[in-house]
Amino acid sequence: MFGNYAGFILASYGVTAATILVLILWVLLDGRKQTKILAQLHERGVHRRSERTKAATHS
């Protein structure tokens, strides 16, 4: 439907989609990784200073 230039148009949109997909995957996977480490730290009992008083009443 794009005439003789279909290849170039599809390649352009393809590269754009791929780049955006990589960005989305990057932020999602990075976010998951950070949340996981944070949860592990909480499990080991490391807390932020602001959370410490809260944690004290629990333990």
Binding site: L23, V27, D30, G31, Q34, L41, R44, V46, R48
Partner: peptide, 26 residues
């Protein structure tokens, strides 16, 4: 799209720094 990605990346970065300071504190 940029705004969404930027916000999410900012959130990741805040968490990363939090983790760093918690690890150093520990």
């Amino acid at each position: 799209l940029f705004t969404v990605l930027h916000f999410k990346a900012m959130k990741n970065e805040i968490l990363r720094r939090r983790i760093r300071s918690m690890q150093m504190q520990a």
